[in-house]
């Protein structure tokens, strides 16, 4: 039976159910228990925002606190994966990829290819991304396009509690390295989630809303923004088809192209900065594969080409919002040659 739980609880439940099912699953990261070696509580934090809370006592010896040394413990998760474990390592903020990227993109991502198909590296790296928490330039980025660029990695962007649980379970069961990107502003959002375990396959987009006028492809937190925009636009008689690709690698190109073939209009909403991001990628795809169907120029709604600012006065402008999305949709819906 489904019940309403938060995005945070959905991820925690996925971890717990997979740890219950498979003794090879271990969890590690900075303060994933929280309190290692301290005189107080030994499960003090459960991750900096509480996602892994409670697992430490439920699964003794399988939730590991780490020193703040991302290269070592992300690399350790990768090494353990080559030996048959199913580690879930937390890279607390995606911004910290800079201090461990080699282990992810030169090691984990390439083992299978470099070793001629004779390696599997079933590691999951959970990481928090996105703006909105007034966390400023080094704790707020949407760097998933960089991971998406790397062959050998799979990149997951759950947009809701239902997606978060099913995609996390798939990430753990998947035999390839997965970068699981959690938007920090979504942790407290709630939705219906089955109690049972379930895996959402990678590379299959969700069609969040059907509509025949404009295709809106949105990623991660932007899915909800696009849905809000689509709700407003329906009142103006513009029906949006909102597509949530769920994973940027693999990318469900078929669903996007099929939709654009029928609407002839495309808006892509991506919180990442605009050079070489998912918006440019989807627009290039459509320009190449569905040029004949286009009835208006494509539109991209993204952050500006700038670091994430601190002041709320600026950060609120930085993040794409329903109004900007609605304006973009209107501009393509009303476009005349």
């Amino acid at each position: 039976m489904a019940r309403t739980i938060s995005y945070r609880e959905a991820i925690n439940e996925a971890l717990a159910q997979e740890m219950e099912r498979d003794p090879r699953v271990i969890v590690m990261g900075e303060d994933n228990a929280g309190g290692a070696g301290s005189p107080g509580e030994d499960d003090a934090w459960g991750g900096v925002l509480g996602v892994t809370k409670g697992l430490y006592h439920r699964f003794p010896g399988r939730v590991l606190d780490t020193p703040i040394s991302e290269s070592a413990f992300i690399g350790a998760a990768i090494g353990a994966a080559t030996r048959g474990m199913r580690p879930v390592a937390e890279l607390m903020f995606i911004d910290f990829m800079g201090v461990c990227f080699d282990q992810i993109f030169n090691q984990a991502a390439k083992f299978r290819y470099m070793f001629g198909g004779r390696a599997i590296t079933p590691v999951t790296v959970r990481t928090m991304y996105g703006a909105g928490l007034r966390a400023a330039a080094q704790h707020s980025q949407s760097l998933y396009p960089i991971f998406t660029h790397i062959p050998g990695l799979k990149v997951v962007l759950p947009s809701s509690p239902y997606e978060a649980k099913g995609l996390m379970i798939q990430s753990i069961r998947d035999d390839d390295p997965v970068i699981f990107c959690e938007h920090k502003m979504l942790y407290d959002t709630v939705g219906e989630v089955p109690e049972e375990s379930y895996a959402i396959p990678f590379g299959e987009a969700g069609i969040v809303r059907e509509g025949g006028d404009v295709t809106v492809v949105a990623f991660g937190r932007m899915v909800g923004m696009a849905e809000q925009a689509a709700g407003q636009l329906a009142g103006d008689g513009i029906e949006c088809e909102v597509i949530d690709p769920r994973t940027t690698s693999p990318l469900d190109t078929e669903t996007i192209l099929e939709s654009v073939e029928s609407t002839g209009r495309l808006v892509v909403v991506d919180e990442a900065t605009p050079r070489c991001n998912m918006a440019t990628d989807v627009c290039a795809l459509v320009a190449q594969e569905a040029f004949g169907a286009l009835r208006a120029p494509v539109q991209m709604v993204t952050a500006p080409h700038a670091p994430v600012p601190f002041s709320d006065a600026l950060e609120d402008l930085y993040i794409p919002d329903p109004q900007r999305i609605a304006n973009a949709v209107k501009s393509v819906a009303g476009w005349k040659r």
Partner: peptide, 17 residues
């Protein structure tokens, strides 16, 4: 057959077991 009907069935079909 609406998208919602298909999605609900997919949600069911993804459950373990």
């Amino acid at each position: 057959v609406t998208g919602r009907l298909v999605d609900d069935l997919l949600r069911y079909k993804r459950l373990d077991g």
